[in-house]
C-alpha cells in the first residue's frame, strides 16, 4: 500500500481535490492513457497515472473501482472534471513529471512494481 501523502511527496504533486479522502492509500499502481486498458487490466483500488485529463478518466475510475488519479506531464483537468471527482470522493493529483519519471519513482515504492499479477 502507498499513502496519498507519500504519492504527493514522491511526485512533487499538487492535490487538486483537498476535500477528498486525505487518508487514502492505494494497493497498486496502473499507468495508461488508454481507458480501454484501465477497464481491462487495472486492479480495483489502484492509483491511475495518466496523461489523459478528461471526464472519461473519472467515469472509468468510478466504473472500475480505481481509488485515485495522478495527471502527469503538467496536465490539468478542467474544473468540471475536478468537481465530478469530488462527488465521487476520488483524489486527483497533478504533477509536472513525465509519465516515465513518475512511474520510475512509484515503482520502487510499491510491491511488485505496482503491477497486477495474473
Amino acid at each position: 500500500m502507498i499513502a496519498l501523502k507519500d504519492v504527493l511527496a514522491l511526485l512533487d504533486g499538487e492535490l487538486l481535490t483537498p476535500t477528498t479522502a486525505p487518508e487514502a492509500a492505494f494497493r497498486a499502481v496502473f499507468a495508461s492513457d488508454l481507458m480501454s486498458d484501465v477497464l481491462t487490466s487495472a486492479e480495483p483500488g489502484s492509483l491511475l497515472l495518466t496523461g489523459l485529463a478528461n471526464f472519461h478518466v473519472i467515469c472509468t475510475c468510478s466504473v472500475a473501482d480505481l481509488a485515485g488519479v495522478v495527471f502527469v506531464h503538467g496536465k490539468r483537468p478542467a474544473p468540471d472534471v475536478v468537481a465530478e471527482a469530488r462527488t465521487k470522493n476520488l483524489p486527483l493529483v497533478a504533477t509536472k513529471m513525465t509519465m516515465f519519471e513518475a512511474c520510475s519513482r512509484m515503482a520502487g515504492r510499491v510491491e511488485d512494481g505496482g503491477h497486477v499479477r495474473r
Binding site: 492513457d33 481507458m35 480501454s36 486498458d37 477497464l39 481491462t40 489523459l52 478528461n54 472519461h56 478518466v57
Partner: peptide, 11 residues
Amino acid sequence: LGFGAGMGLPN
C-alpha cells in the same frame, strides 16, 4: 478520448 483500442467487445 482514451477509447478505441480494440478491447471493448473482448472485455
